[in-house]
Design a protein around this nucleic acid. Structure first.
Lengths: 198, 198
DNA sequence: AATATTATAAAACGATCGTTCGTTTTATTT
DNA sequence: AAATAAAACGAACGATCGTTTTATAATATT
């Protein structure tokens, strides 16, 4: 790996920390350069525009989510076990994504849900893919006979997502540790509500 | 009402529109002044600081939420009917809060959940109060014999909040109208899961 | 070791930020 | 109608924003 690629990754690591705290929009090249003991222009040259830096930061966050949450869940057995793993990993991700300011993507949604552009598009694509992957895991659980056949995968994914969002809210805004128990309880009931009983 | 109060309210109306689109932080006095055909300094004098303007904008949004969502629900009969009214009003609020950029408070949470200060405190207070009010409405429904006695009001409020958050997400980021149906289905099942059967 | 390429730096750009300062215009009250 | 207070203005402040230009230092390639 060349020197350029090396600093580029260091920049993106630092950018993720900053973006998690102040958002993708608030991410400033000046602050980022100071944090890295670099010049603004030297840093800037790596990306060519702020939007490119934001996009790369977002892309890196999406990739890390895939690695830490989705990837490990694929190691679990098809069906209910995998869904439980996915949920557990996701909740763990909320508590510690390795960043001080919480999930970059959830933060970016609030900023860019109504601002057209490349970042908006990347968010839509990412969350659509995520929701689709959840729905798919539901379908697999149905096929495996773990969930009832009349379970609506999209409805299930919607409710699961809601549990995650509420957990994130309570955990981040209120620092409420009960959120984790609430989440576990809610998901257990969501699962049992659609469970295929023998 | 004096002239000052009059323009002050016009400013806050315009500020709500801007803040809903670009966030409380992105709310700029220059843009706001331009939108109102005022001078920056003239506008600024009404509040004395940007943070004061942000706080007033937030406070106005909280008040409008109370008027449009919570207040009307109190007109419904105690218990389940009131909870349904609250939920319906809330979902309607997500679709049209009168602002082009969605709920200001939900947006502000993403910006200020980890930034200490007066805005953070106002958000914590507001959402705590909201959650407490939901829990209270659950307790009333239990007392009225509509919900089972072993229903945990906080758990219920958590799940209800999650449904709202997921609805907001799908509606705003994806513009997905199915979100409304998903929300209704989820809430109906949440209610029936805790329903006290005769 | 010499050369070509890449990476970083320094300085400056115009724009906008929140804020302050006098001053002037507009309302309100006497 | 005169006196007073409130409100809005225009200009400027220092700071920071993203970006561009020009130049130097470090790295890779031959």
């Amino acid at each position: 790996m060349g020197k350029g690629q090396q600093t580029r990754e260091a920049i993106l690591d630092s950018a993720a920390i900053l973006a998690s705290r102040i958002g993708l929009e608030g991410l400033s090249i000046g602050l980022l350069a100071t944090a890295l003991n670099m010049s603004k222009s030297g840093l800037f040259a790596h990306f060519g525009s702020k939007e490119a830096l934001q996009l790369e930061t977002l892309r890196a966050a999406q990739q890390r989510f895939a690695e830490k949450v989705f990837g490990p869940a694929l190691a679990a057995a098809r069906g209910e076990a995998r869904m439980r793993a996915l949920f557990d990993n996701w909740i763990a991700w909320l508590q510690d994504s390795g960043l001080p300011g919480g999930c970059i993507m959830l933060g970016a949604v609030a900023e860019y849900d109504d601002r057209p552009g490349a970042i908006h598009d990347a968010l839509v694509a990412g969350f659509s893919e995520l929701r689709g992957a959840i729905a798919k895991s539901v379908r697999i659980a149905i096929d495996e006979g773990h969930l009832r056949a009349d379970t609506d995968p999209w409805q299930f994914a919607f409710e699961m997502f809601g549990i995650v969002l509420a957990t994130s809210h309570d955990w981040r805004l209120h620092g409420d540790p009960r959120a984790l128990q609430h989440a576990r309880t809610a998901f257990a009931q969501l699962l049992s509500r659609h469970a295929q009983h023998a």
